[in-house]
């Protein structure tokens, strides 16, 4: 019982963090048709920027500054990179984001070195939040959930209650028509790309110190968020949300179970499970859980 509760809470908080990453990826994909390989790099940049800012002026300013910086970089990448490459088709875009991911990783090596940096949970948020039976639940995990839920509510409000949100929703299905009505669709693309990058950056700020901030962190989380987008259904935010929680819980539970099958424990097989899920889903339901289009 105790194990179940604690692991569920951990699974949800990890799942919410994954959603913060996959929501931007899926929005960018469905709006612009760009599968952004560099998305997880924005997550890494968020963590490193937060580390840098927090060592000079503290964690709280970093929580605001790092995502804004990452968002600004995202907008620059869209405006001066992707928009030009777009003319040469999707393959060129894919290669562009692929190259960008390496570029960011090398830049991180150059600036912060090849090993992990000392990005720690701030002292105000260190310690137990409450105790379940005998386990203490850390404040920081609760804080992560709070930030993720606040972000979730804000995305939802922006998309459904504001004019720009309605333009985004309309552009998801009919970009040409939206533009002919007088809306600057290229600018909307830039804002969405920047917004997605900022969300990934925010995930980096709150995830970087909960886990580890090191140059391999983008490559570690990148494939998982692709799995989420595919499992949830290309272009579906609701699908990405469900898939994030599913994979978040699946991974947290799996790594702590030591039941074994044919000599391999579930914990050992844990890293494979998301990909297994993706492969099965692609075979039996190629459009994903809530996706509207095939493939």
């Amino acid at each position: 019982m105790e194990f179940l509760l604690v692991q569920t809470l951990n699974g949800i908080s990890y799942g919410l963090l994954l959603f913060m990453l996959s929501s931007g990826l899926t929005l960018v994909f469905s709006l612009m048709g760009v599968l952004n390989f560099a998305h997880a790099s924005f997550y890494m940049l968020g963590a490193y920027f937060a580390y840098q800012v927090s060592t000079t002026i503290g964690f709280w300013p970093a929580l605001a500054i790092a995502p804004v910086l990452v968002g600004a970089i995202g907008m620059l990448v869209e405006r001066w990179g992707l928009r030009t490459v777009h003319r040469y088709g999707h393959v060129a875009e894919l290669l562009f984001t692929f190259g960008l991911a390496y570029l960011i990783e090398e830049a991180v090596h150059l600036v912060w070195g090849r090993s992990s940096v000392e990005y720690r949970v701030p002292p105000d948020l260190d310690g137990p939040l409450f105790t379940i039976f005998t386990s203490q639940y850390p404040i920081y995990r609760g804080f992560m959930m709070l930030v993720s839920v606040a972000m979730l509510v804000s995305i939802w409000l922006v998309l459904t209650r504001t004019r720009i949100g309605l333009v985004i929703q309309a552009a998801l299905t009919h970009p040409q028509t939206v533009e002919a009505l007088g809306h600057n669709v290229p600018r909307v693309f830039m804002l969405v790309f920047g917004g997605g990058a900022a969300l990934a950056g925010l995930a980096g700020v709150i995830g970087g110190n909960a886990f580890v901030t090191e140059p391999g962190m983008a490559a570690a989380v990148g494939p998982i968020i692709f799995v989420i987008v595919v499992v949830g259904g290309m272009g579906s935010l609701a699908g990405a949300f469900i898939a994030s929680l599913l994979i978040g819980c699946m991974q947290t539970f799996a790594v702590s179970l030591d039941w074994s099958l044919a000599g391999i424990t579930i914990a050992q097989a844990a890293p494979v499970l998301p990909y297994l899920l993706m492969v099965l889903l692609l075979i039996f339901r190629p459009k994903g859980l809530m996706g509207t289009r095939e493939g």
Binding site: R163, L166, V167, Q169, A170, T173, H174, Q176, T177, V178, A180, L181, G182, H183
Partner: peptide, 21 residues
């Protein structure tokens, strides 16, 4: 546009709102 290119997930009122520049 032809083909009744409305925004299917938005309400009638929201469709009209997006007509405004």
């Amino acid at each position: 546009p032809e083909n009744r290119d409305i925004f299917p997930t938005l309400t009638v009122r929201q469709n009209l709102l997006l007509g405004r520049k």
